[in-house]
């Protein structure tokens, strides 16, 4: 194993228009096997940051390193084979394709010999999906969609998995099963970068949390510490009643 971190950004500047960058110089290093949560108020630039890492938003400056390799200029689809997988917050599955086709097309980038085995592995991991591979993915419920999106990302066995608010819009019961799944994926050795609004749940499974405000990192710390820091919660996340009771 090399010493290089799983993922790192150096002074990353990114956004939708060059003269109006949303992400304004972010330095972040994520070690192998870590689970890091990105927190921050709405509109802080969390989604833009992870999209820039995944390659769907242009970078205007700085660098993105994946396992020591500079991937800043790498085209979107090549980042997959480099070991990076991203699950966007919305529109993260192909609704007009069947469940099976969603997974199959993600497996298509693998060498032929590996495809069948990986598909089997995903079916075993997500029995809910395995029971009806021919169903159009658009007919799935919110939680099942999230499962399919994660399965689609995992099938290539990425080193780093990035998820943008996987719990948004899900019922509390489903949220906890999604988080349990993320934790077990992380324990199997996958480095995870997780954007979340659900601060408590995210910090419960994370090793570390970082707080992003107005496109810059404001605070970085151990997850357990962050979780009990009421000042931070008020400052950056808005005083939420549930936090007071914690």
């Amino acid at each position: 194993m090399s010493e290089a971190p799983a993922l790192a950004t150096r002074g990353l500047v990114a956004g939708y228009e060059r003269d109006l960058p949303i992400v304004r110089g972010i330095d972040l290093t994520i070690g192998k096997g870590e689970l890091v949560a990105i927190l921050g108020p709405n509109g802080a630039g969390k989604s833009t940051y992870v999209k820039a890492i995944a390659g769907t938003v242009p970078c205007f400056g700085g660098a993105i390193m994946l396992d020591g390799k500079d991937i800043t200029a790498m085209p979107l689809h090549q980042r997959i084979s480099a070991g990076l997988a991203f699950v966007p917050q919305t529109e993260n599955i192909f609704a007009s394709l069947s469940i099976g086709e969603n997974l199959q097309l993600a497996a298509d980038v693998l060498p032929k010999a590996l495809r069948a085995a990986r598909l089997e592995k995903m079916w075993a991991m997500f029995p809910d999906l395995a029971s009806r591979p021919a169903l159009r993915a658009g007919q799935l419920s919110g939680g099942q969609r999230q499962m399919l999106a994660v399965a689609r990302a995992l099938i290539v066995e990425p080193q780093v998995l990035i998820l943008d608010e996987p719990s948004a819009g899900l019922s509390p019961k489903i949220v906890s099963s999604v988080f349990a799944m993320l934790q077990s994926i992380n324990r199997s050795g996958v480095t995870i970068l997780l954007v979340e609004q659900n601060v408590k749940a995210a910090l419960a499974i994370a090793d570390r949390g970082v707080i992003l405000v107005e496109g810059q990192l404001r605070h970085e710390g151990n997850a357990a510490q962050l979780a009990t820091d009421p000042l931070l919660a008020e400052l950056y996340l808005g005083a939420q009643p549930e936090k007071a009771s914690a």
Partner: peptide, 13 residues
């Protein structure tokens, strides 16, 4: 259906 997602799924758009 979705060009950006296709790229994320490893397809060379």
């Amino acid at each position: 259906e979705n060009q950006a997602l296709a790229g994320l799924a490893g397809i060379d758009v």
